[in-house]
């Protein structure tokens, strides 16, 4: 099926894009297009105007600077997979990237586009939550920074104004003694998550947990924070029992729906399991615990 006709713009600079967004009525922004193109084709989306930002080279970056990992609006999933900086320091990102869809999709789809799409089954929103990340938005009123907790409102709905564009997603560079991980359960390669959990742990010098971040995928109406589990972890020393309790709290806070992949109670149980696994990996990567060898 063909997309309905639309007015088409291809700005080549951010300033041109912003002035276009200001002048157009309810424009739709096209980045990687791996969700939007099929939506257009099936006419689930019928925008009058599409602004293709792929020609804006200044948005194509992935770098670590000013204390952040900065992900430009045109950085593709594959860029994360191939990044040495990410592999070394950002375990949850390195875990999540190869679990997004399939190789062809990862060559086109963008991290920022996935976040802006605000699909509760998207992986990156959870990773951003675990890292207390934020997005930078540009619009007619200028630039503003939106913390991830204020971004997702409903499925496919964010707090962005209709003339705003996310130019960057960023998370703080992890200090010493911090680690993170992402675990995802899916039926087969390429599928969306049935459930997914991103976890990040930062430790004090004495080995207690100074800060915890847990984001959950596909088990609520948006990517969701497991705040009760985070609070339970902070100030404690890592142990299997502690992570078990955190898993239970995360499961309690999740709100999955039954569907063809499993009923809600099963998914809650999976949130529990995935949380424990992600916390275990995060603690290990922070360098504070070593796993017992599997018997």
């Amino acid at each position: 099926m063909k997309a309905a006709p639309f007015e088409h713009h291809e700005p080549t600079s951010l300033s041109k894009a912003v002035s276009l967004l200001e002048s157009l009525d309810d424009p739709t922004i096209l980045a990687g297009g791996q969700s939007l193109v099929p939506m257009l084709r099936f006419r689930l989306a019928r925008p009058d105007t599409v602004v293709d930002i792929n020609g804006i080279d200044e948005l194509d970056y992935l770098d670590e600077s000013d204390g952040y990992l900065k992900i430009g609006a045109l950085a593709r999933h594959a860029d994360i997979e191939e990044s040495d900086v990410v592999t070394e320091n950002y375990g949850s990102f390195a875990d999540a990237a190869p679990l997004v869809a399939d190789p062809q999709i990862r060559n086109r789809g963008t991290i920022v586009g996935s976040i802006a799409q605000a699909d509760p089954k998207g992986d990156w929103g959870s990773v951003l939550i675990a890292h207390d990340g934020e997005v930078v938005a540009e619009g007619p009123e200028g630039e503003r920074v939106i913390p991830v907790d204020e971004l997702f409102l409903l499925p496919y709905d964010t707090s962005l104004d209709e003339n705003e564009l996310i130019t960057e997603a960023r998370v703080p560079t992890p200090p010493e003694r911090e680690g993170s991980a992402y675990h995802k359960l899916k039926r087969k390669t390429g599928d969306y998550a049935m459930a997914g959990v991103a976890a990040r742990l930062r430790f004090d010098d004495d080995g207690t947990i100074a800060d915890a971040g847990i984001g959950m995928t596909a088990v609520d109406i948006t990517n969701a924070r497991a705040a009760d589990a985070e609070a339970h972890l902070e100030g404690e020393r890592p142990s299997a029992e502690l992570f078990q309790k955190a898993g239970e709290l995360a499961a309690e806070q999740s709100n999955p729906e039954s569907d063809e992949h499993g009923d809600a109670s099963y998914k809650e149980r999976m949130v529990n399991v995935l949380t424990q696994r992600a916390l275990g990996d995060a603690a290990e990567r922070a360098g504070v615990v070593k796993r017992r060898a599997t018997p």
């Binding site: 096209l30 297009g33 791996q34 193109v37 099929p38 084709r41 293709d52 594959a78 190789p103 062809q104 999709i105 060559n107 086109r108």
Partner: peptide
């Protein structure tokens, strides 16, 4: 790079 040509204009 491999891409899906039905997912791109």
């Amino acid at each position: 790079e491999p891409i899906k040509s039905c997912m791109m204009f």
